[in-house]
Amino acid sequence: MAEKKIKIIVAKPGLDGHDRGAKLLSRIFAEAGMEVVYTGLRQTPEMIVEAALQEDADVVGLSSLSGVHNYFFPKVVELLKAKKLANVLVVGGGIIPLEDIPELKKAGIAEIFGPGTSTEVIVDFIRSNVKAK
């Protein structure tokens, strides 16, 4: 059997156009040996989940800087479950107040990475939390 690769969808939900972090991390994930599908801007939760489904992703990484995380992130988790993709690891990043994190985790987002997080920390987290298919 060939070596398994971690496949990750990097997505920008909503209308926010700040994609520096999303693009940077896409490159860092690829350098860490992952297969990265970057979806681009203006993604609805439905589009992100459809991408996760068709790509059979292990991980969905969401980036938001416009303050819409409380709406979008849980919605993505909910739709993943509805599509029988509960095993997909969902992580998020961007401008997200620390006090929002407990609620987001309760909604099923595995981890939230705020500004200034070392990219190694993010890569390590994904590697050790990705679930078997």
Partner: peptide
């Protein structure tokens, strides 16, 4: 807010969650 900048009204589906945010 982003919907205005992207040329959508506040009740457009893509505006969900964004109204008045930034």
């Amino acid at each position: 807010h982003l919907p205005t900048q992207a040329g959508y009204d506040s009740d457009h589906p893509l505006s969900m969650g964004e109204v008045g945010k930034v």
